[in-house]
Nucleic acid binder design. Structure first.
Length: 554
DNA sequence: AAACGCTGCAACCGCCCTTCG
DNA sequence: ACGAAGGGCGGTTGCAGCGTT
């Protein structure tokens, strides 16, 4: 960043600085004991006063600064100024690759604990890290890339297996010296919220409209948590523990890697909390404010007909909306909600989280990996395109069978080296067709809002260990079915949930009459279904095909 | 070349929580 | 128990740089 700052190391010349007065009437300010406390940018003079004061009196007792130094700033402002700008040990400049990696790792471990991250990054402030992360989130969401490198996911998994915990500890054990046994990343999964009200934190982060009109069950991937938290009068606070307890529920919005595991079936007859009964009024969010957002993120790429809601300043990725619009939904009477939610969540987390990028030589977190991953994605699309030049007419059954155009199987072969990393989710990143616009294509089943699909227990660990070899992958394309139902019919009008029977029947249909009981379909697939049924995953973000990977039922 | 819009970033603000006296 | 101070974090704002028109 070449932008000049008002704490430029030597000159202390602020581009905000307008004069030497300590009180800028234009900046407004509060009063303290009849004293007008200045707000706004700090001037070089103020910095110098504060610096001198700290040198003489040390840090702390910030409210005394005003008394002793005449600085017309509140104590907190002084503290922040010192901590974020004036501290002599602050490191300036861009984050190094190591720092970026560390941030990613740390965020994977502890979520939005900026201060704790800063403690691990000497010379860096929490605010700096937060800004970096938010920028990263913004970039990667825009690019349709996962926030976390898949290698991190795999690493976490490996370590996780060794620890016999459901949580995740994404490498860098040395970083975890402060983390005791409870400090494991929650094994969050879509139904990992089983019966634990804490899990509802995520739900509570969701827009009111969504909660009111749509069943949302373990959908919001904490990967996006920091970015999709909503404006609210009363921010939810974390529970006392930094990490969830062994119940495996989400707390604190920690990132989830193990979406495919810890399905944790049977823990509760109905582990999927219902919003109707679980909503905490205190947690209900204000409806999104369309006008919010400081930056004009709703640029031309955004669907003008789909306002940006709330603070979720997501941009539609270039690979979306460029060729089609949400009119695709018109073919199936989309729930009105979706129009509102699509801006909320553009990318199906489960997809992204497992997006293959293991080959990324180095994930710097930003531009380089964006380029790299975009390249991978595009190459993957080309790969697919070459294989199925006319796949738009392929029916699900076509795909199921040993059709040469069955990209699923082919892709599976390609990624066989890492079944977990490249299982359903990797495929989900590949377009099901080659039209170049997923939204041109019939919407996949797993793009529908709602979620009651409760997959069979899926042992992702086993799959990861190749104990289960997925034997089938099917496209699960609702619209290709002659008896396709209106979108609304996928929902049980009573419960508002997706009709599990329909899902299974469709699956069975695709399987040609085979019993779905013969298979486990991967949780990831269902997870995607879940997410998209929430409306957050967006319909075809990332040109996501509907793929169910089937493995032999154990 | 100028205008415009978008993006990234730095920095501040406000709310809330925790700690401490 | 209460209030003040400190601290954490999400949200917001404003500017510079850059690309596009």
């Amino acid at each position: 960043m070449s932008r000049s700052t008002n704490e430029s190391e030597d000159g202390q010349i602020s581009h905000y600085q307008s004069d030497s007065s300590l009180i800028d009437e234009n900046n407004g300010g509060s009063t303290s004991g009849g004293h007008v406390l200045k707000k706004g940018p700090w001037t070089a003079n103020e910095d110098e006063i504060l610096r001198t004061y700290v040198q003489q009196h040390g840090e702390g007792n910030w409210n005394a600064v005003q008394k002793h130094s005449g600085l017309s700033r509140c104590g907190k402002s002084c503290r922040l100024r010192w901590a974020n700008h004036l501290r002599p040990d602050l490191k300036k400049g861009a984050f190094t690759n190591d720092e970026e990696d560390l941030i990613i790792n740390l965020h994977a471990q502890i979520g939005n604990k900026w201060a704790r991250m800063a403690a691990r990054l000497p010379g860096r402030t929490d605010n700096e890290i937060k800004n970096y992360w938010n920028t990263r989130v913004k970039r990667r969401l825009r690019a349709g890339l996962p926030l976390y490198p898949t290698d991190l996911c795999l690493q976490a998994r490996q370590e996780n297996q060794g620890q016999n915990t459901a949580g995740i500890n994404c490498g860098d054990k040395g970083q975890s010296d402060h983390m005791n046994a409870k400090n494991h990343i929650p094994p969050v999964i879509f139904n990992g919220l089983n019966g634990n009200p804490d899990g509802l934190q995520y739900f509570s982060e969701l827009p009111t409209m969504s909660m009111n009109s749509m069943p949302m069950k373990g959908i919001v991937h904490p990967q996006y948590y920091s970015y999709m938290t909503l404006n609210r009068k009363k921010r939810l606070r974390e529970t006392s523990d930094d990490f969830p307890d062994s119940s495996g529920c989400v707390q604190n919005g920690y990132p989830l890697f193990d979406q495919c595991e810890n399905v944790n079936p049977g823990k509760d007859a109905n582990p999927w909390p219902t919003f109707q009964e679980d909503l905490d009024p205190n947690k209900i969010l204000l409806p999104y404010d369309v006008t919010q957002g400081s930056h004009a993120l709703s640029n031309g790429n955004s669907s003008a007909s789909n306002p940006i809601y709330g603070n979720v300043k997501l941009e539609l990725p270039s690979l979306q909306y460029t060729e089609t619009d949400l009119g695709a939904w018109a073919t199936s009477a989309p729930p009105p909600l979706l129009d509102s939610v699509d801006s909320f969540m553009q990318s199906p987390p489960s997809v992204n989280v497992f997006e293959p990028e293991c080959s990324t030589p180095h994930n710097s977190g930003l531009l380089e990996d964006l380029l790299h991953e975009s390249k991978n994605l595009s190459s993957g699309k080309r790969h697919l395109s070459e294989k199925s030049p006319n796949s738009s007419s392929i029916t699900p059954c076509d795909v199921v069978d040993n059709n040469p155009l069955n990209f699923c199987e082919t892709e599976w072969e390609d990624y066989r080296e890492s079944p977990f990393c490249h299982s359903a989710t990797s495929l989900l990143n590949e377009p099901i067709t080659t039209s170049g616009s997923s939204l041109d294509e019939p919407l996949p089943l797993n793009s529908f809002p709602g979620n009651t699909v409760k997959p069979e227990p899926f042992d992702a660990d086993s799959v990861a260990a190749k104990e289960i070899e997925p034997i089938r992958q099917i496209n699960f394309n609702h619209f290709d079915r002659p008896d396709s139902l209106p979108l609304s019919d996928w929902f049980d009008q009573t419960t508002g949930y997706v009709d599990q029977t329909l899902v299974n029947n469709t699956l069975a249909s695709v399987l040609g009459g085979e019993s779905t009981n013969d298979y486990k379909y991967m949780a990831a697939s269902t997870a995607s279904l879940s997410q998209d049924m929430m409306g957050f995953g967006h319909y075809s973000w990332n040109a996501m095909p509907s793929v169910c990977q089937l493995s032999e039922h154990l």
